[in-house]
Design a protein around this nucleic acid. Sequence first.
DNA 1: TCAACGAAACCTACCGAATGGTATGTTTCG
DNA 2: CGAAACATACCATTCGGTAGGTTTCGTTGA
Lengths: 193, 193
Amino acid sequence: MSLSHQRKKQPELVRRSLIDCAARIVAEAGVGGATIQAVADAAGVTKGGLLHHFPSKQILIEALFADLLEQLDAQLDAQLEGELEGDARSYGRFTRAYVRAMTRLSEEASNGVWTALTLAMQSEKPLRALWSGWLEARLRRHAKTDSDPSLAILRYAADGIWLAVLTEEVSSADARRKLLALIDRLSRKPLAP
Amino acid sequence: MSLSHQRKKQPELVRRSLIDCAARIVAEAGVGGATIQAVADAAGVTKGGLLHHFPSKQILIEALFADLLEQLDAQLDAQLEGELEGDARSYGRFTRAYVRAMTRLSEEASNGVWTALTLAMQSEKPLRALWSGWLEARLRRHAKTDSDPSLAILRYAADGIWLAVLTEEVSSADARRKLLALIDRLSRKPLAP
DNA sequence: TCAACGAAACCTACCGAATGGTATGTTTCG
DNA sequence: CGAAACATACCATTCGGTAGGTTTCGTTGA
């Protein structure tokens, strides 16, 4: 009855679709609320089919997370590329890109996925490992321009703002933009004497 | 078999114990992972007993959250009281107290509870209402000394640092303390010219 | 060229373990 | 004695995961 026996088998496409659908559903219902059944349905596959590609929910979530990290990487690289003003050694270069990437992610549809996965990090060690590994590598790459503690504070502030958005602290989109702009300005030179 | 039939009935103590145990377990397993059964067990009460005090898990969590807000209030007031240096009108007064209270809470055992509940806010509206209401009121109270955007950034940075603790970004306890000390210093006067 | 075969890509059916909640006792206290 | 403070037993579901089939596809060897 299912269409899967009629259409050509394209495992990579199915895999992609599964991750995309997982992203959407996780964004809506959170990691806990996203059942593999729902994800499978959304992708037009049965639960068994899903479990063929991802042997457990854990693994599916981790794959989704890794995928998002790749997207974030792409975002960051695009931002870094687009920095016309200075050479590759300009102070706070990565921090500005990071803050901007965060802003974009907060405003795009993919937002909910990040919140949900951040949420899930608390209980799932593998996700934490993925994230801290990613950030660590990235920071090492930009040690020359972004190792100042002032910049760490600004990056953390961006994280805090992003967190505040999801807790619905009234800070309007406008106020948020102003704060992020201020952060951008402050990232041009060290804060402390 | 249970001891509850032997010991004197002290509903307030049981209630307290339930909240405390809920805090510990939520800190360890997150809101989703904390089952009412586990909480009841930890408090030496049956599930039915727990549900007598808190008719649903929702209500238990909200009670826990409200309790933590009270603790935070107490912490904050203590910090504000202890500020010897200036009068009640000194710039960034509340922000410093906020950062310090956060620090203390992060280092105490109650740490994981905050992370878990903050993250749980995403899915639970009542919790968001509690928090944003609390913060709004508090900010209004200290509008005279702490309305500068620079200070907002510093408070957000404290939030971000605190969030990073749970994602296990390597930032050691030592590095964290240094950052918080820097924030404290930066809170003495506006950052931007 | 093509039949055969084995592996990969699915599907159907089922299970079992949690878990939140209910309904109904039984004990204790004022 | 009545109400509060518990306990016991049970229920309804949900959900992740397993077992074993069936279909599709690429490869291989004659």
